[in-house]
Amino acid sequence: MFLRSCLAALTVLIALGAAGAATADCPAKSTQMDDIIAALKAAPSCNRAMTIFEACEYGASGDVQFGAVVEQRCEADFLSGLGASRKKAYQRELRACDRKYLNESGTMYMSFTAFCRAEVAQRYSQKALKTAGPKAR
C-alpha cells in the first residue's frame, strides 16, 4: 500500500513538473491545445515540430494529438519515398510503440506512446533528409 501511494505521488509530481515546463518554454501562443497544435502545424521542419512538442507537452493524454501532428509533419519528409519493405518496417516500429505501454494505466503512458511514435517518425525523417543531402533541408 505504501509503495502504491509513493508511486501515485511520484506520478502527480512528474505530471506537474511537465506541465510547469510546458508553460515556461512552450513557443505556442498559449498552452491551450489549439494553440499548440497550430504551432506544431506551422513548424518548418520535423525537428522543429519535435522541439515544440517537447516544450509544450502535457505529460498526459493530450499529447496523443500533439504527437499525431508531429508524426504527420515528419512523414511528409519520407513516407512517399519508402519502398514496401521500409513502409512495413516503419509500421512495425510504430506498433512496437503502441504495445510498449499497452498494459499500463494512467494517461502519462499515453503521452509516452505518443512520444515514442513521434521519435520513430523523426528518425525516419532525419535519415531521409540525410540521404537526400543538404538541398532537401
Rank of each mutant, 00 (worst) to 15 (best):
L3I: 07
R4T: 03
R4L: 06
R4I: 04
S5Y: 04
L7F: 02
A8I: 01
T11V: 04
I14R: 13
G17F: 00
A18Y: 01
A21I: 01
D25Q: 06
D25R: 13
C26F: 02
K29Y: 03
K29H: 11
T31M: 02
T31S: 12
T31A: 12
T31H: 11
M33H: 10
D34E: 10
D34S: 11
A38G: 10
A39E: 08
A42D: 07
C46Q: 05
N47P: 03
A49P: 03
E54K: 13
A55Q: 15
A55L: 07
G59T: 01
V64F: 10
Q65T: 10
G67S: 08
A76H: 13
D77T: 11
D77M: 03
L79T: 10
G83H: 04
A84H: 09
K88Q: 12
A89M: 05
A89Q: 14
Q91L: 15
Q91N: 14
Q91P: 00
R92A: 12
E93R: 14
L94Q: 15
R95C: 06
A96S: 09
D98S: 15
L102V: 06
L102R: 14
N103H: 07
M110F: 12
M110T: 12
S111A: 14
T113M: 10
F115N: 12
A118M: 07
A118I: 04
A118G: 05
A118V: 02
V120M: 11
Y124K: 08
Q126A: 09
A128G: 07
K130W: 08
A132Q: 14
G133N: 14
P134K: 08
K135L: 13
K135Y: 06
A136W: 08
A136I: 13
